[in-house]
Design a protein around this nucleic acid. Structure first.
Length: 283
DNA sequence: TGACTTGTTCAAAT
DNA sequence: GATTTGAACAAGTC
């Protein structure tokens, strides 16, 4: 499930394999994934073009092309990128295959086909038109607090809303809220400034660390919920049991003892229990 | 077999 | 008008 760290690692992957290579031909089998772009435009723009530079905004990857425009990739749930040399067999099923003049291929696969592909002329205009929020690793603490103070929906839903802040998905949102000890169903606008700051710092710390490890989950095992979202787990903080709830139509896992529902209008206190998991909370 | 999962979009509700 | 909610989408897993 590609969230910000996975997309950042795709960006680095393209940087390390595919830049400054000329596309000889493309093979395309993803009409249903196209976003405001015709198949003809995709083919005409990519053929003979060169991948120059990459940008990431939230979960979107933009690849700047030498001759006008950017190739936009969104990975949905199951999107993946692989670079193949001529001696390795490319996969039979793909959405987009870029065949470079040097014989290598960059292949975009997406088994569940929830990804997106487009040719975008102006990246900033695209982000603005679609109303995406600031990237989760670029937003400042002050801006984060200001935006979330106004939102009257569950903090988990707000965190995952790409129009509020771009890059956080379901899995990371559970970990961020666990580290910040905030109940996923707490209404964002009803959290205190201190609690919002905690969430902000948890978000930045976790995402940065995940990016630093190229989204390799085996390097993030000291985080409780990452890759381990289950009901009935023993919480490392209070030894209580983790719970499952549907929040905003999405699965949410949390520790009800450490993550108490909070409402500052009635001034209910959250659990103050400190615990030593992860890198947060201490300091 | 069918319930469940994911991120995004769209329509409906507030 | 702005914001929130929930269904829908595809297809893989269990």
């Amino acid at each position: 499930m590609p969230e910000l760290p996975e997309v950042e690692s795709f960006k680095r992957y393209v940087d390390n394999t595919s830049l400054h290579q000329t596309i000889e031909t493309i093979r395309f089998a993803g009409k249903d994934l196209l976003l405001h772009t015709s198949e003809k435009k995709l083919r005409d723009t990519l053929t003979g073009n060169t991948l120059e530079e990459t940008f990431r905004h939230g979960k979107f990857l933009f690849i700047k092309l030498r001759r006008h425009g950017h190739l936009l990739l969104h990975f949905g749930m199951t999107g993946d990128l692989e670079y193949y040399t001529p001696d390795a067999k490319s996969p039979r099923v793909y959405v987009l295959l870029l065949a470079f003049t040097n014989g290598n291929n960059l292949v975009f696969t997406d088994s569940r086909r929830l990804g997106k592909i487009a040719i975008v002329n102006d990246v900033d205009a695209f982000i603005q038109e679609r109303g995406y929020g600031v990237d989760a690793l670029k937003i400042t603490e002050a801006a984060f607090s200001k935006i979330f103070q106004k939102r009257k929906k569950a903090i988990k839903t707000a965190l995952m809303d790409q129009k509020i802040v771009a890059g956080v998905g379901n899995e990371f949102s559970d970990e961020i809220l666990f580290q910040a000890r905030i109940h996923p169903m707490s209404i964002a606008a009803k959290l205190t400034e201190v609690q919002l700051r905690k969430i902000y710092h948890a978000m930045v710390t976790i995402l940065k660390e995940a990016v630093g490890h190229n989204a390799d989950r085996s390097k993030l095992e000291h985080y409780f919920f990452l890759g381990n979202r289950k009901e009935g787990l023993k919480c490392p903080g209070c030894k209580g049991t983790t719970e499952f709830k549907t929040v905003g139509g999405r699965s949410a896992y949390f520790c009800p003892a450490c993550q108490k529902l909070y409402d500052n209008t009635t001034a209910q206190a959250t659990s103050g229990a400190a615990f030593a998991t992860g890198k947060l909370g201490g300091g």
